[in-house]
Amino acid sequence: MVISVPIVLLLAAATLLLLRFKAVGLGAAVAVALFGFYLAGTDAADTVNQLVTAVASALAGIGR
């Protein structure tokens, strides 16, 4: 999927900014990262992938 790498980089940057500005603690950031890692191995991964693709397509359509 073409959009997965930019989303990963965007989410990583957002996480680093939240940690930098102390909006979230290190423990919470690790917990959310582990949740995403384990969620990717479940049947819900396809649904999440389709949802993110649909939202990205909708956002791309707004700019046209």
Rank of each mutant, 00 (worst) to 15 (best):
V48S: 06
A40N: 08
L11V: 10
Q50S: 09
V32I: 15
S4R: 10
A23M: 13
G36Q: 02
L19E: 01
S4G: 01
V2Y: 02
A40P: 00
L59V: 12
V24A: 15
V48Y: 04
A40M: 05
L11I: 05
V30W: 04
Y38Q: 03
M1N: 05
L34Y: 03
A56C: 07
V8A: 14
L16R: 06
V30C: 02
Y38G: 00
V24R: 01
A54N: 08
L39A: 15
V48L: 15
I7T: 05
A58F: 11
P6Q: 10
K22G: 13
V30G: 01
A31V: 13
V24L: 15
V5Y: 03
L9Y: 06
A60R: 05
I7N: 02
L18V: 01
F35I: 13
T42K: 06
S57N: 09
S4M: 06
G36T: 02
V55A: 14
V52A: 14
L18P: 00
I7F: 10
V30I: 15
A31F: 14
A40G: 14
L18H: 07
S4F: 04
T42P: 02
A31C: 07
T15C: 13
A14E: 13
A56Q: 00
L9K: 11
L10D: 12
I62V: 14
R20G: 10
A12K: 05
L51E: 04
T42Y: 08
F35M: 11
D43T: 14
A28E: 15
T42M: 10
L17T: 08
P6N: 10
Q50G: 04
N49M: 03
L26A: 02
A45G: 07
A31M: 13
A14P: 00
A56E: 01
A44W: 10
F37S: 03
T42C: 08
V8Y: 08
G27F: 02
I3L: 13
L51V: 09
G27A: 09
T53G: 01
L18A: 13
V8C: 07
G36H: 02
D46Q: 15
G27E: 04
L51W: 03
A45H: 12
G61V: 03
R20S: 12
G63Y: 09
I3D: 06
F35G: 06
R20H: 10
N49T: 11
F35N: 00
F37K: 01
A23V: 08
A54T: 09
L39I: 14
L9R: 12
G63N: 13
T42F: 09
V52Y: 00
G63S: 14
G41Y: 01
A45T: 11
N49F: 08
N49H: 05
A13E: 12
G61E: 12
T53F: 00
V8E: 10
N49P: 00
T15K: 07
V5A: 07
V8K: 08
A23Y: 07
L17Y: 06
